[in-house]
Amino acid sequence: MHRSKTNIAVSYFLIILFGLAMATPFVWMILSSFKTEVELMQTPPSFLPRHYKLTNYLTIMQSIPFLSFYLHTIIITVIRTLAQLAFCSMAAFAFAKMHFKGQNIVFIVLLTVLMVPVQMILVPDYIIMRTLGLVDSLWGVALPGMFSAFGMFLLRQFYMSLPNEFLDAGRIDGCSYFGVFRRLYLPLSKSALISLVIFTVMYSWNDFLWPLIISSSDNSRVLSVGIALLQGQNRVYYNELMAGATMATIPVILIFVFFQRYFVQGIALSGIKG
């Protein structure tokens, strides 16, 4: 009993110590959003603001159409997350549990998507979007991010670790592979799907370069691009930038806090396999 108490205490200590180290830059970003530009840029810098003022938040609300950018970002994130959940889980299941000709080659070829810097595909993707007539539209912004090699790989690894027994069980019941996937495997992969949701939301929310290239008016502009406008050529409005970033990140943090509660012990599994 005594041993496990010290054990817990040490755990607390480590978690809090490193947690604070990880969080410091973020906390500083929030604190700095209340500072004036002069205070923010002074040498040496300060941690706590001298006065807490909301001026930066008000200025930024006036200088960029924050709410409509918010809305666009949410729409795009929802589209991408739903699409990735559907497409990636299906493909991952097929790659992990089914056998078909050419699957290994196709899998590796799809993985190569991750191996080239995004910069290199911007120009051709822009030309494709122009051919499709989707420049400066929300679909144009969302489309490439609806497909993911990363998500597919993530879920494939998860399905690989699930037992094959259900496959046989489902087949005896006369289910198609898709049926087995949808009724048996999909419900079991909740925690992996939640990781994918967190990743997709994060990626989509912070995605910057592609939306910047493809949108050419406020009609399809997203938050990350709107905030970047505060970085001028000769002057960066750091204080407003921090305020904008703080406002932009709050929903994502809420999403994280909400979803990660569902990381629960694999209850379903322990019952069935035994």
Partner: peptide
């Protein structure tokens, strides 16, 4: 049947990755 089903299930993601990533690469 398994082969056909497998291809059908990987189709959406594969097509998307092909068009927006592999061809540009």
């Amino acid at each position: 049947k398994e082969g056909v089903q497998g291809w059908l299930m990987i189709l959406p993601n594969t097509l998307g990755l092909l068009l927006f990533y592999l061809i540009p690469i």
